[in-house]
Nucleic acid binder design. Structure first.
Length: 423
RNA sequence: GUGGGCGUAGCUCAGGUGGUUAGAGCGUCAGGUUGUGGCCCUGAAGGCCGGGGGUUCAAGUCCCCUCGCUCACCCCA
């Protein structure tokens, strides 16, 4: 048994999955940079105060934070998400608004791991700070939507809601609290607890026992101000104009306390409810001010890498990219030819591999085959003396040909590019 | 944090009612003519059967604890 393995909820992302992760972020970057979003790379570690603003009532803050006191007596935490970091960064550097940022990277939450839920998990996301315009909400949601489409996902469900203006939200929470309190006995013990901390979240309960009570609960839309209703209306109309299908889910309350106004969630149609939330976001118009900045509205989303990839697996889309060499150099001499040829071909941008340890020609050919290389270049004493190399197409029955050593690189470039053209 | 299931070679898994040196397939490595892959054949390496304790003449197989994975709840991405 190995002495060490990864800590719970942490894992190695190995090939070919690792390449898929890279490509995932590439697709995301292309999607959002086309809309003018710029990359921000916040630190993994921040003063814990940055994150406690996410909500005193959320488990993310109260129970799941990886926090500690560092050698300088600073109370710090590994980020549980990145929105707060982006806002902190905004307050610290004060870029001009609207400020449009995207990010990707790991977050940490001390939870019990299970499928689609890890203690270190990657997210990609965008944030727009400095505009109240509902068209920003629409753009943000649309970018999330087309990203999923670019991954090839067909069964994404988009749910949208609005928590109204802060006063609306407050009034609604009060009404909800009073409604649930009147029916406390009908609620599950868990929901009774949730009620004390955050009445909104009771709406999220999946327990059958709660469903009847929840069904009769007051709905947020009757608390919307005229402005909030109009904002939401514009958002819905915009999505419709863009041809983005969505449903209005008046019970959609996001987990973090800072949300107000528009909220939305992307769900994977093929996944179980435990991990079907692939991403979500909304407006957090008070967060920047909470972090000591000017009163600045914000809207954004975060998308979970693992869960989205899970959805891709289910739909059979966005596979790991192929990982094959172009050329494999087989050297049955002392290895110096392989050394030089590899260096030369790699410098020319040809993906070139070789084997080590003076293995037999047969073993080297097997390795060449396994590498997926299209061509094998063979060289030994005889070839070296003759100033040639043998070139063999591993995926055709054509005879191998001898090529002047000085022509090898040019020959391979032309062969490979003509193959690429054919495909 | 609470409950259910599981934990045997690198991977996927077999191993009725406890009984001699723990198996298969795949993968890896080496051979099957002197310098040639893919198919096939032969052979080899590789497991204190997650860890610890207990019951027993004897445990991968039973019991307890622990760690881990997994599923559900919770929470959320």
């Amino acid at each position: 048994m190995p002495e060490f393995s990864t800590s719970p909820g942490m894992r190695d992302i190995t090939a070919p999955e690792s390449a898929r992760w890279r490509r995932f972020v590439d697709v995301f970057e292309r999607t959002v940079s086309a809309a003018g979003y710029e990359l921000v790379i916040p630190p993994l570690l921040e003063d814990i105060g940055v994150f406690t603003r996410l909500g005193e009532a959320t488990d993310v803050v109260t129970k799941e934070m990886y926090d500690f006191v560092d050698k300088g007596e600073r109370h710090v935490a590994l980020r549980p998400e990145q929105t707060a970091s982006i806002c902190r960064s905004f307050v610290e550097h004060r870029p001009t608004t609207p400020f449009k940022a995207w990010y990707s990277g790991p977050n940490f939450r001390y939870e019990k791991p299970q499928r689609g839920r890890y203690r270190q998990f990657d997210q990609v996301g965008i944030e727009v700070l400095g505009s109240l315009d509902p068209y920003v909400d629409i753009e943000v949601i649309h970018l999330g939507w087309i990203f999923f489409k670019k991954l090839g996902l067909q069964q994404i469900e988009l749910a949208v809601n609005s928590l109204g203006e802060p006063e609306n939200r407050t009034a609604y929470v009060a009404a909800l609290k009073s409604y649930f309190n009147d029916r406390l006995a009908d609620l599950s013990p868990e929901s009774q607890q949730t009620l004390e901390k955050n009445p909104l979240r009771v709406l999220d309960s999946k327990r059958p026992q709660d469903s009847d009570v929840i069904a009769g609960a007051p709905m947020i839309n009757s608390f919307w101000s005229a402005e909030a209703a109009a904002h939401f209306d514009t958002v819905c109309n915009g999505l419709t104009s863009l041809g983005v299908p969505f449903s209005i889910d008046l019970k959609l309350v996001r987990g973090l306390d800072y949300y107000r106004g528009t909220t939305f969630e992307f769900r994977g149609g093929t996944l179980d409810s435990a991990q079907n939330a692939l991403g979500g976001g909304g407006r957090y118009d008070g967060l920047v001010a909470d972090l000591g900045g000017p009163d600045t509205p914000g809207v954004g989303f975060a998308i979970g890498l693992d869960r989205t990839l899970l959805a891709c697996d289910d739909e059979g889309t966005f596979p790991s990219p192929p990982d094959a060499a172009d050329v494999f150099v087989v050297d049955v001499g002392d290895g110096i030819d392989a050394l030089l040829i590899c260096a030369e071909l790699r410098a020319a941008g040809i993906r070139t591999e070789r084997s080590w340890d003076n293995r037999s020609m047969k073993a080297q050919m097997k390795a060449a085959n396994r590498s997926g290389a299209r061509f094998a270049v063979l060289i030994g004493e005889d070839e070296r003396l003759a100033g040639i190399a043998l070139l063999r197409d591993l995926r055709s029955d054509a005879e191998q040909v001898s090529v002047a050593r000085t022509e090898l690189q040019a020959t391979l470039i032309s062969r490979l590019s003509s193959l690429q053209g054919a495909e």
